[in-house]
């Protein structure tokens, strides 16, 4: 009996740790200061982008695949926006020292908004398992697709998902 109680207690603890943001969930709001901004206190919230397809990306300067993904996503974002597609990238930098993220962006600037979360509260809320992790969020704020890592060809895969989402929402 004691053993049964212990197993149940353990399972409860394990399950609490396993719940993560998943496809079909409403994307948790992310409200953070902008990493590089003329106004240091400028806050941006994910909910501001409701009505658009949003690519939410958690990245860090110490993660090589994250750095590969940044210019690719920048090019994709600019190309889709020039076609009149309501698409936006919101990146969250999780470097414990925001200067590291800033140094990378000074070298390779991007046009989308980059937020700073040195305490890692938002990746913890999303319970991400690897870096980078990204979520494709539909105009209603629901997660439609999640992606871990960034390998060659992933840019095309993400573009396909965006176009698929666009077709479905029309």
């Amino acid at each position: 009996m004691t053993l049964l109680v212990l197993i149940v207690v353990n399972l409860i603890f394990t399950c609490v740790n396993a719940i993560a943001a998943d496809v079909g969930d409403i994307a948790l709001d992310v409200s953070l200061p902008v990493l590089i901004s003329s106004e240091q206190t400028q806050q941006v919230s994910l909910n501001q982008y409701r009505g658009q397809i949003v690519y939410l990306d958690f990245w860090a300067s110490w993660c090589p695949p994250c750095l590969v993904s940044m210019p690719i996503m920048n090019e994709l974002r600019n190309r889709l926006q020039s076609q009149g597609i309501a698409f936006e990238v919101v990146a969250v930098n999780v470097d414990s020292d925001p200067e590291d993220g800033m140094d990378f962006l000074e070298e390779k600037p991007v046009d989308f908004v980059v937020l700073s979360d040195p305490q890692g509260k938002t990746p913890a809320a999303y319970k991400i398992k690897g870096m980078p992790t990204s979520y494709l969020i539909n105009p209603a704020g629901v997660i439609e697709f999640s992606h871990e890592g960034f390998r060659p060809g992933d840019g095309e895969k993400i573009e396909e998902e965006i176009l698929k989402l666009l077709e479905n929402s029309q």
């Binding site: 207690v9 353990n10 603890f13 993660c63 690897g130 870096m131």
Partner: peptide
């Protein structure tokens, strides 16, 4: 039983390095 309970609860309390906390390990 008390010892076993304590051990099991301690195991669930083990800290793991999360994906976004690996900046130092990546150096």
């Amino acid at each position: 039983s008390v010892a076993l309970t304590f051990i099991c609860l301690s195991i669930t309390g083990c800290e793991s390095v999360e994906a976004w906390e690996r900046g130092t390990l990546a150096k």
